[in-house]
Design a protein around this nucleic acid. Structure first.
Lengths: 119, 119
DNA sequence: AATAGTGGTAACCAAAAGGTAACTTATGGG
DNA sequence: CCCATAAGTTACCTTTTGGTTACCACTATT
């Protein structure tokens, strides 16, 4: 049986998507930004177990992949707001589908036990 | 402004889904199994840069999360076949949506450059 | 008696990801 | 003059993930 090498855009683009949203806190950040922009400090409060450095790293990567937009105001003390880009918005229904899949497929897990802090 | 702790099943189930499909080779394995069951050795051939140990690890985790089924035949030399479970099948449309999102959102990337070996 | 074929394990190592704590910058307020 | 504040950065450390190589078990074939 001869193997042949073929193009497989599906699995490749999927791997790319996983690289983009696969960071430990990225889906949470995207969900928090779904309802509007948030300042750095608020994100820190809403994700109580993340550290400044890691939050910064994740935000930078999301920005680099153009899922979020960082707006810096020329104020002292500094003010920075993060919001979803258009590209980020288009990801929401896909993440919703993934979330629903997990809820349906692992009904024995009580996902309500997971708490996140919100406004 | 007072924070309150709320249940957030969405982001939690999403994190769970990411844990399940987030392994480096898992989306590829799932895509390869989408067209029918494959033996261990075939998977090794089709993913030329994976090692036996890592393939074993990924398959074990997918099995533990009940996305794939491992069928061992009592033959010498051994024969083991891996196939998608029903749960694994229901994941396919979601992965497809994620793949399409990446293709649409990052049109500047040529995902066809990514090659995978197939039958 | 030696070898091939299949699906692994075991011991070990390297790289990436994530985490901690202290420090920085600039300005207004006491 | 000192402190607080927001949004970081820096140096360092730990954990997780992925990777390499050698080895094993069992039988049929040469």
């Amino acid at each position: 049986m001869g193997r042949k090498i073929i193009n497989n855009p599906n699995s490749c683009s999927l791997v790319h998507a996983m690289n983009i949203i696969g960071g430990k806190w990225k889906p949470i950040i995207i969900y928090l930004l779904a309802n509007g922009s948030l300042r750095f400090g608020k994100l820190l409060l809403f994700i109580p177990t993340i550290s400044k450095k890691v939050l910064t790293d994740q935000l930078r990567e999301l920005e680099e992949d153009r899922l979020i937009i960082r707006t810096k105001f020329a104020e002292i003390p500094p003010r920075v707001e993060y919001s979803l880009s258009e590209k980020g918005e288009t990801l929401l229904p896909v993440l919703k589908a993934l979330s629903n899949w997990a809820i349906d497929s692992y009904q024995e897990i009580n996902f309500e036990m997971c708490k996140i802090i919100e406004l």
